[in-house]
């Protein structure tokens, strides 16, 4: 199945693009997806900051099971204001 992944700020610069479509296995969790992306984009591998995970514009836990066409965002430390 396919999911959409959007990258912002620090992660967008590391990946070099703001949005990708990614083919993943059925039943993959958000944490599984992050592990896969770290292999696809070696520049993500050293990212040790604490990330939040958002699916379809809601914060979710890392064990959230993804579904077809979900919009996933890995949220680096926010710094608005």
């Amino acid at each position: 199945m396919k999911v959409k992944v959007k990258f912002f700020a620090f992660l967008r610069e590391r990946v070099g693009t703001g949005e990708i479509t990614k083919e993943i296995n059925e039943g993959s969790t958000v944490a599984d997806l992050w592990a896969t992306l770290k292999k696809d984009y070696p520049k993500l591998a050293p990212v040790e900051m604490r990330l939040l995970y958002a699916v379809n514009r809601n914060y979710v836990n890392p064990d959230y099971a993804l579904k077809e066409s979900d919009e996933v965002v890995f949220v680096p430390p926010v710094s608005g204001g």
């Binding site: 912002f8 700020a9 620090f10 610069e13 900051m49 604490r50 990330l51 939040l52 680096p76 430390p77 926010v78 710094s79 608005g80 204001g81």
Partner: peptide, 20 residues
């Protein structure tokens, strides 16, 4: 929302150096 600080001599995404 994220802020990048542009300063004399460089730029940095605020908050990326520490935990959240």
């Amino acid at each position: 929302i994220w802020k990048k600080e542009v300063f004399e001599g460089g730029e940095v995404w605020i908050g990326t150096q520490s935990g959240q």
